[in-house]
């Protein structure tokens, strides 16, 4: 759906050049919810704004659908933009228009005949649950309602792609959840591709299929959200994950395991489990089967998008051979294992 190739953006000010995006390449598939996470100033905002050319890239190309958006003239770009919806952190609704008229706005721009446009607006307001607020002005709405109007407006011209620029960053956690649910519903119902940027790993965890981590103008890690949560490769990613899901073993436990026990007879392991295996009694099966002791030190279970996901830190005590066999058994059950007290 989107193919970004070697995208570079340099802002030139009279005194200096600022590299905002450094040779970024990325593919977003049709129908997926793709998240880009990064700290402020990392370049994520520039990246998403290049996709509808609100920012002109310095180098590189972007394909949206089958159109090379970076190569269009003004007229074609306007037509292409009508098929790329966008929602914003501060909603950007027109205060001079009612909810109904705000949703009507993109249809006016696309010169859709009035009758047809009005019908479409009613459908959209129903979709986002704001039929009864059609005649209200934005100032009379709550943040969550404003973003629903923003979403309805972005969907008006039946876009191929929805861009979400920190759409939940100005909302409280409960409202954020309801907006994210709405985005998930829309993605499922319309098979609409969604590209979102955020600094909040919760957003990624709740709705995204895949994620790219952007740090210092570069994409540093890309992958399925579950894989990234189970096995983050770089410190930036780990720190994002630890903000929403505690996977670190308390320091005292690690210290004790490392100093007071022999690494041969005691192994400290972290097991990550994803999906169905989270429901299986693998640990008790293992204990019965291999005649070792397993002491649970730490654990938690959560959900990533709609999949159960968790991790468990175990102290396994017993014959070295048996411990290794037990670990192989766990691995065989599809669990990700990491030994924490290897010397």
């Amino acid at each position: 759906m989107i193919e970004i190739k070697n995208l570079t953006k340099i802002y030139t000010t009279p005194t200096q050049e600022i590299l905002a995006l450094d040779d970024v390449s990325l593919r977003v598939e049709k129908g997926e919810i793709f998240g880009i996470i990064g700290l402020s100033g990392a370049g994520k905002s520039t990246l998403i704004r290049c996709i509808n050319m609100l920012e002109k890239p310095t180098r590189g190309s972007i394909l949206v659908g089958d159109r090379e958006i970076t190569a269009l003239d003004k007229e074609d770009l306007r037509t292409a933009r009508q098929k790329i919806g966008m929602i914003f952190q501060h909603f950007n609704l027109l205060s001079s228009r009612t909810v109904f008229e705000n949703v009507m706005f993109p249809l006016e721009i696309a010169r859709v005949p009035t009758n047809q446009a009005q019908r479409r607006v009613n459908e959209l307001l129903e979709l986002v649950g704001l039929e009864d607020r059609a005649d209200s002005y934005p100032a009379q709405l709550s943040g969550g309602q404003k973003q629903r109007v923003g979403i309805a407006r972005a969907l008006a011209n039946e876009p191929l792609l929805l861009l979400s620029d920190e759409a939940t960053s100005a909302l409280d956690p409960q409202t954020t959840r309801s907006i994210l649910e709405l985005l998930k519903d829309i993605n499922r119902q319309l098979n609409l591709t969604i590209l979102l940027i955020t600094h909040d790993m919760n957003v990624i965890k709740e709705v995204c299929d895949r994620v790219a981590v952007i740090d210092d103008s570069r994409i540093v890690e890309v992958g399925d959200v579950l894989d990234i949560f189970a096995n983050p490769k770089i410190p930036t990613t780990r720190s994002f994950i630890s903000a929403v899901m505690n996977r670190e073993v308390p320091e005292e436990l690690l210290y004790r395991a490392r100093t007071e026990t022999s690494p041969n007879t005691t192994k400290l392991i972290r097991i990550s489990f994803i999906g169905a295996s989270a429901g299986e009694p693998v640990i008790s099966n293992m204990v019965r089967k291999f005649d070792i002791d397993a002491n649970i030190l730490y654990g938690n279970v959560d959900r990533v998008k709609d999949t159960p996901f968790g991790n468990l830190t175990l102290e396994m005590i017993g014959e070295p051979d048996l411990i290794i066999q037990a670990m192989e058994y766990l691995h065989g059950r599809g669990l990700e294992i990491e030994v924490l007290n290897d010397v």
Binding site: N52, R78, R81, Q82, P106, A110
Partner: peptide, 21 residues
């Protein structure tokens, strides 16, 4: 707010439409 103009541009508005609408 510039965001309003940008929102209109993101929908494919022409400069004339931005001015009038």
């Amino acid at each position: 707010e510039w965001g309003l103009i940008e929102a209109a541009l993101s929908m494919g508005a022409s400069p004339w439409q931005v001015i009038c609408k």
